[in-house]
């Protein structure tokens, strides 16, 4: 298993477009049914990520980004219902039984959390936590797994790894902890790494280090990365392609360069305008007025219409579909031609 994936690995010289996607998501929907009509948190989103590529997923809090990530791991809370197709390396995950999911989790698809403090078990040594993943998935014995865990800590740039492996989470700094979390996520060399705001809880210099580390490891391991963030500056730096989510739907899809050069959807434009610029005096940062509506699935027209400066009557009446507008770009807005 391991060896044939190594054979695939030196494929960086191939043209990017010909690489088949590792992860394909088609019409993913997550509902939370309730007697009062329920809530559709993720509404029919589709995307794919190729080997070695990074997809940025941006949007405000509460627009379904994190729920998408949990759905990919089969961890939608039991009160919710997931529909749509998820395909990993050509194998469908949607109809996986509860018994088979643990083989995918952590081994083929891994997740890095936002808060490195809470994502680590406070009562277990760092090295043991990483070793645990290896015992689960590769059936390694304790000593072997421990060796590999130390190796893994070294890989993510933790100095004196053998000693750090014996530390408890509270004995490490935030940056070190996030490195440990990444080491744990990558222990089994997953095909897909989902990073859910992995740098939000860290200060800026550490952020840069962690991003650099993630890119470097991606080059080494070649996994596809789904990078969830509301920090556009970070996404512009790390992502190849970007999808912008609003109220459970994708409103714009483009390559990272195109999106930041010329955002088409008014929501994307609003998000980019809110970024402060260094060297330009601003009395007040621009904001997008209002918040994501909480029961967004009931809105008949465009879900952003209530906050959109360009919205008119037709926007409120008819929901815009995601449609291609230029080469490699899609947007869901009536006002873009």
């Amino acid at each position: 298993m391991r060896s044939d994936r190594l054979d695939e690995a030196p494929g960086q010289d191939l043209p990017r477009l010909s690489v088949p996607p590792v992860l394909e998501v088609d019409g993913l929907t997550v509902d939370f049914p309730s007697p009062h009509g329920g809530k559709r948190v993720v509404d029919g989103i589709s995307y794919s990520i190729a080997r070695g590529r990074t997809l940025g997923v941006v949007g405000e809090s509460g627009c379904g980004k994190s729920m998408t990530a949990l759905a990919l791991l089969g961890l939608v809370p039991s009160s919710g219902r997931m529909t749509g197709r998820i395909t990993l390396n050509g194998r469908s995950l949607s109809d996986l039984s509860a018994k088979d999911w643990p083989d995918v989790r952590g081994q083929r698809i891994a997740l890095v959390f936002q808060e490195p403090m809470t994502a680590l078990n406070p009562a277990m040594r760092i090295g043991d936590q990483i070793a645990e993943v290896l015992t689960i998935h590769e059936g390694l014995r304790k000593t072997e797994a421990r060796e590999r865990a130390i190796e893994q800590l070294r890989l993510v740039g933790i100095p004196s790894a053998a000693e750090r492996a014996k530390a408890y989470p509270h004995q490490l700094s935030g940056g070190m902890r996030q490195r440990a979390v990444i080491a744990m996520a990558l222990a089994c060399r997953p095909d897909v790494l989902i990073a859910d705001e992995p740098t939000t809880a860290l200060d800026v210099t550490i952020q840069a280090q962690i991003l650099e580390l993630m890119q470097q490891l991606q080059d080494e391991i070649g996994m596809a990365v789904q990078f969830i963030s509301h920090n556009l500056a970070v996404v512009s730096e790390i992502a190849d392609d970007v999808i912008v989510m609003y109220a459970g739907q994708i409103v714009e899809r483009a390559s990272s360069a195109d999106l930041f050069a010329e955002p088409l959807h008014p929501y994307t434009q609003g998000l980019i305008e809110t970024l402060p610029e260094i060297g330009r005096a601003q009395d007040e940062l621009p904001v997008i007025a209002g918040t994501v509506p909480s029961h967004y699935h009931d809105i008949p027209g465009c879900r952003f219409a209530g906050r959109c400066p360009k919205a008119d009557a037709s926007c409120r009446a008819v929901a815009p579909a995601l449609r291609p507008v230029r080469l490699g770009r899609e947007v869901a807005c009536h006002k873009v031609s």
Binding site: L73, L75, P102, D103, V104, R105, G106, Q107, A110, L111, F113, E115, T118, A119, L120, N121, P122, A123, M124, E132, V133, I136, H137, V181, M184, A185
Partner: peptide
């Protein structure tokens, strides 16, 4: 409800393992 329990599930740990390795040491 703590996140590291979700993290353990994310990394593929089964229920028994989560109970013994993640919950029990934290209620000891």
């Amino acid at each position: 409800e703590r996140e590291f329990i979700l993290a353990a599930r994310v990394s593929g740990a089964g229920t028994t393992r989560i109970l013994v390795r993640n919950v029990l040491p934290n209620v000891i």
